[in-house]
Design a protein around this nucleic acid. Structure first.
Lengths: 141, 141
DNA sequence: TATTGTTATACTCTATAACTATA
DNA sequence: TATAGTTATAGAGTATAACAATA
């Protein structure tokens, strides 16, 4: 289906563009793309394991170790042993981490609002349907 | 708009997943994500400049130099000075490069077909509308 | 035995700035 | 002066494999 093509290529292109735009909007925080992605996902204040954060962000574990080291070094989060499973950590944002995450979410939301203005809820729902279908196709593989 | 949220986060997540799936499907070629992305865009056999390829893929120039060095080293493409503007190169796939690019396009198309099966053309069109809106919002910034 | 997370290694990606050649 | 592309540098992302601790 060449005519349908571009679904994946435009996905990658758009990712590059949004990462660059967010990095620029958040330049004062000096965060990398993976750090921004992690903070945006942690912004809901819910604790989760490293593995879960990897699933949420799409980031592999070896990358997350470094990302979490830096965020922890900034005092943005804590790693606490999970009493229920002492192999894993519960990641929790500190106050400073919540503030940074709120900034990240604000910029993400601003970019989304700017982009989605003029589009319908149905179009956004279709977008999510395609994204979900892509993920499932990858998982099947 | 928390309810609309996830547009950008799921974009990044899906990008990670598709890159990993394509890398696995094309493991025998030993290509990196950026190389896959470049080949997929060059697969239409049309020559273009380094700058244009950067626009097409979303890859910055400093990354492209290395990517093109490796693709050229494999004998996949040639860099020829553009007679019309001798500051720039025209990138053209060789026969081997076209074969590799065809493999890449085949895997990309297979993943897309697998994902889009069950979705309507309208949903895919809406997906592209959201992607385009995101890009334009980034450019405005 | 399997899983969570880290570490080690090697290579690639990226931003930034400076540079050459051309326009 | 401005643009196309490269180079240099330093830091970050990634795959792979191995590892310790826990399940």
């Amino acid at each position: 289906m060449i005519s349908d093509s571009g679904v994946i290529l435009s996905l990658h292109r758009a990712t590059h563009h949004t990462l660059r735009a967010l990095g620029a909007a958040l330049a004062d925080l000096g965060l990398t793309s993976a750090e921004i992605n992690a903070l945006a996902n942690l912004a809901d204040r819910r604790s989760r394991s490293v593995k879960q954060l990897g699933v949420d962000t799409g980031t592999p574990p070896t990358t997350l170790t470094g990302v979490l080291d830096r965020l922890q070094g900034r005092g943005y989060l804590t790693r606490e042993l999970d009493p229920a499973d002492r192999r894993s950590f519960r990641l929790t944002l500190t106050g400073a981490g919540q503030a940074a995450a709120a900034r990240v979410r604000h910029e993400v939301a601003a970019l989304e609002e700017s982009a989605l203005r003029g589009l319908t809820a149905g179009q956004v729902a279709s977008y999510h349907a395609v994204i979900t279908a892509l993920q499932e196709a990858c998982d099947e593989h």
